[in-house]
């Protein structure tokens, strides 16, 4: 193996700045996509478990559709195909005039895709609370919305903190797919450093460490949050 080591490259200009900038894009992309995924996913999760048959069907269809097409293909559909299907003016706006078209598309695609996964977690959380709680709410005269708002959701969300954490981390990792449509996030930056300097080993090691450190930090923080909001007396929390 012939290789010239130069770890100093990572701390030299402009490469250090590139890494910081890449991480910034990765984090903002993940957080914005997570807002979409979490809100839409929660709504879909409620729809899948509510008493209305049509709403259940819509949510189920959404989950099956978004879960069975690869994220990369969905990204291409939003970026290349979606603008073509719009009326001319709207299509042109999406393709060119919209602020930061690639980044915006990546946020939306990633958010909509992950919403289908969040939906399943919310659904299983609500199932874990059990039908007894739902019936108890109805028995004391709550309507369906109140049952969700005051009984099911506050319990369910606390139960599903661990799986939701891993869904967030999935978004964080999946944000690297945005490089295929030209968003220069962390992975793209390290690839760029490799191409400029031929120090691939150092560049990829930097990205690897950054991803791992962020992942483990988030997991640690969420474990503390989980302990704080734990529901006393549940088997899963003992």
């Amino acid at each position: 193996m012939n290789y010239n080591w130069d770890w100093g490259i990572l701390f030299r200009e402009p490469y250090f700045d590139w890494l910081v900038e890449g991480l910034m894009w990765t984090v903002s992309l993940s957080l914005l996509a997570w807002i979409i995924a979490f809100s839409l996913g929660s709504i879909l999760g409620i729809m899948r478990t509510c008493s209305s048959r049509p709403l259940q069907l819509i949510a189920t269809a959404y989950v099956e559709l978004f879960r069975n097409i690869p994220l990369l293909v969905q990204l291409f559909l939003w970026y290349f195909v979606f603008p073509e299907l719009l009326p001319d003016d709207a299509g042109r706006w999406v393709k060119r005039e919209m602020p930061m078209p690639a980044l915006t598309t990546a946020i939306i695609a990633l958010g909509l895709y992950t919403a289908s996964r969040v939906c399943e977690q919310v659904r299983s959380g609500i199932a874990a609370v059990g039908p007894g709680q739902r019936n108890a709410g109805k028995a004391i005269g709550m309507n369906e919305w109140q049952v969700y708002r005051y009984i099911l959701l506050p319990n369910a969300f606390r139960i599903i903190i661990p799986p939701l954490t891993s869904e967030f981390l999935t978004i964080f990792k999946n944000s690297s797919l945005a490089l295929t449509i030209g968003v220069v996030e962390l992975t793209a930056m390290t690839r760029q450093i490799e191409e400029y300097t031929f120090q691939g080993f150092e560049a990829f090691t930097a990205a690897t460490l950054i991803y791992s450190v962020v992942t483990f930090t988030v997991m640690l923080l969420m474990r503390i949050v989980e302990r704080r909001v734990r529901i006393p007396g549940m088997i899963s929390t003992n």
Partner: peptide, 11 residues
């Protein structure tokens, strides 16, 4: 499990 698949592919 903490790494993006794309990064592993590049590696």
């Amino acid at each position: 499990r903490s790494l993006p698949l794309i990064l592993v592919i590049f590696w």
